[in-house]
Design a protein around this nucleic acid. Structure first.
Length: 573
RNA sequence: GCGUCUGUAGCUCAGCUGGAUAGAGCAUCUGCCUUCUAAGCAGAGGGUCGCGCGUUCGAAUCGCGCCAGGCGUACCA
């Protein structure tokens, strides 16, 4: 990465200047940190490092520091200028050519990390109850989670994606009871969900169980809807909901390596085992008939019930066992994506892990702010128990690409207002089309390079600029001296391609996906701009070749970035 | 009350561990299609960075205190 390159150069320069005694009172043992940035004004250069922070220890003015360091720089492949406390760098055309060469050689691997700090990561996200269709919020976790998994893998981590199915709690009973009411209605009985607000909370009155009831009756025509066992209804409804959820996830290009059933966790005895372990270690006590976990010993603000007075477990009980099990399966790091409404759970889960002897710092919880739906400029609150806009509805309306992109493009700390009308629009208000359009344009140019041209007015055909073999050969054996022909007009575009590597590294380290969205928009913009002021296919064969190599490099980088986001790359639009 | 997230241009948001005149997209206005996709490009206007105090040579960025909004504060999941 060029950023790292210049940072290393300057650090070397600092040490040499210290030895030469030109850095005032600064000594070799003095620690310092520098950052590489992009100059606000392009005239200054391509990269810049501000050395003013060294003034504190050196006790000399920033410009003197910058000059002292600059004297020691090799300046082999770049030129340097000092302005105030800034050392500005301009890269040589040869370095730009190296970038194109690198992209063309590495292809789908361009931008990948070196795997130096590789970890085995378990990423858990979505983890919805199988009690109904996904809501919009699940869409955010699904899109962000899968993109993050792609990103972390691309960076070089080993990533295992998991969906925890909450199929064991009381909500499943509610689901079964709700299905019974729908069944009774189907056979013509005059029953309905309670109108009392409190009682109604024991049911899922959404419409979505109606088709499930119809299907059940088709498969079980002789069933007595009043007496059929609740467990049968629970299982049936649960399986239907799960199937429906998985189908949607696949459709959204969200792939899980495992769907981990809470029910199976209980059956395995692991929940009971962990409960006993906490008991044996003295972390539990009884109060008012319930068993409490002393989570305050590990930083939680109050103790938590782990077994209710009626003998049943809380959600936390299974979650403790689940997270412990993740560690037992040998992962270096656990990453969970949770909705902000689960914020209070972090402390208690971490406390339990620490109590059980695991390192709670190895669990990272990415807390996602919630999603509001905006329809006609008005916020629509979501609620599972009444009818709502589901994720299915949203995707049907705006499509997978736009849905994913809109869910991914915002910082996870921000409440997301999802404006359906805006996302649906296939105009310049929609960044996803802007980026895809750039990709389609790139593909179009590459097609034109090898296709004969038809003049629509005269009907005359002119021969293709080059054959497919020639193009492949150009790309696969790119002569980097060619790029010098176009370097001056393509400099910002090439630097943007080069930046991809540091964007990947930074995004992976910070676990941010939106930074990839920003990058891909910037790259598209640089390309569109280049396209408008430079003709790729022209009479000058060498210039054409140089620019085709560049265009292919843009295609590769856009593809690599969009693949991470799970957004499609249409070759024509 | 406590915890947490957010408050930057008309709108939606960037601003990396503090640093060169505060950025982008949309919206508004002005130009650009007989040449590779105008779903595009070039340019213009538009901001007391919620408020105050502090740390610093330097603060949108760090600390503290306010103000406003979201979420949480269950023997629900």
């Amino acid at each position: 990465m060029l950023k790292d390159f210049f940072l290393k150069e300057v650090k070397k320069g600092v040490n040499e200047a210290i030895k030469a005694g030109t850095l005032g009172q600064m000594g070799v043992e003095d620690e310092f940190s520098l950052i590489v940035e992009k100059p606000k004004n392009a005239d200054f250069g391509d990269f810049a490092i501000n050395v003013s922070s060294l003034a504190r220890v050196a006790k000399i003015a920033p410009p003197m520091i910058a000059n002292a360091i600059t004297e020691k720089l090799s300046k082999e492949n770049y030129t340097v200028s000092v302005v105030g406390g800034f050392i500005n760098f301009k890269v040589s055309d040869s370095m730009l050519a190296d970038t194109i060469k690198e992209v063309l050689e590495k292809k789908e691997n361009y931008g990948k990390g070196d795997g130096k700090d590789k970890e085995k990561i378990l990423l858990e996200y979505v983890s919805a109850n199988p009690t109904g269709p996904f809501h919009i919020g699940h869409g955010r976790w699904a899109a962000m989670g899968s993109a993050l998994a792609n990103l972390l893998k691309f960076y070089g981590h080993e990533v295992y994606q998991e969906f925890y199915i909450n199929d064991a709690g009381s909500q499943i009973q509610k689901l079964g009871n709700s299905l019974r009411i729908r069944l009774q209605q189907e056979v013509g009985k005059d029953v309905d969900f309670p109108t009392d607000e409190v009682e109604r909370k024991n049911f899922y009155p959404g419409d979505y169980l109606i088709p499930v009831a119809k299907k059940f009756l088709q498969e079980n025509p002789n069933v007595d809807v009043d007496t059929v066992e609740l467990s049968v209804l629970c299982d049936y409804a649960k399986n239907e909901m799960e199937a429906c959820q998985r189908k949607l996830l696949e459709g959204c290009r969200v792939h899980f390596d495992k769907f981990y059933s809470e029910l199976d966790l209980h059956k395995s005895g692991k929940v009971e085992k962990r409960y006993k372990e906490l008991m044996d270690k003295g972390y539990l006590y009884e109060q008012e008939g319930a068993m409490w976990f002393k989570s305050t010993q590990y930083g939680d603000d109050q103790d938590r019930v782990i077994k209710k007075a009626d003998g049943s477990n809380t959600y936390l009980t299974a979650d403790i066992a689940y997270h412990a099990d993740k560690f037992d399966r040998g992962y270096d790091r656990l990453i969970d994506i949770w909705g902000a409404d689960h914020h209070g759970y972090i402390a208690r889960v971490k406390a339990s892990l620490e109590a059980l002897g695991y390192n709670p710092d190895k669990l990272e919880v990415l807390l996602g702010q919630l999603v509001n739906l905006v329809i006609d400029g008005n916020e629509v609150r979501m609620g599972k128990r009444k009818n709502m806009v589901t994720l299915d509805d949203l995707i049907e309306e705006v499509g997978v690409d736009a849905t994913r992109y809109w869910m991914e493009m915002r910082n996870i700390d921000m409440t997301l207002d999802f404006d359906i009308e805006l996302a649906k629009r296939s105009t310049d208000e929609n960044p996803v089309f802007y980026v895809q359009y750039a990709y389609a344009r790139v593909c179009s140019i590459l097609r034109n390079a090898v296709n004969e041209k038809l003049n629509p007015e005269t009907g005359e055909k002119s021969p293709a600029p080059m054959t497919k073999t020639e193009l492949d050969n150009l790309i696969n054996n790119f002569d980097k001296s060619l790029i010098l022909k176009t370097a001056d007009t393509a400099k910002t575009l090439i630097l943007k391609l080069e930046e991809f590597k540091s964007v990947i590294a930074l995004s992976a380290q910070n676990r941010t996906v939106y930074t990839i969205c920003r990058y891909v928009q910037e790259l598209a913009q640089e390309f569109h701009s280049f396209y408008n002021s430079n003709r790729v296919i022209g009479d000058d064969k060498e210039l054409t070749s140089a620019r085709l190599g560049l265009v292919e490099a843009v295609r590769i980088t856009l593809k690599n970035a969009l693949d991470i986001l799970g957004v499609s790359t249409p070759e024509r639009m």
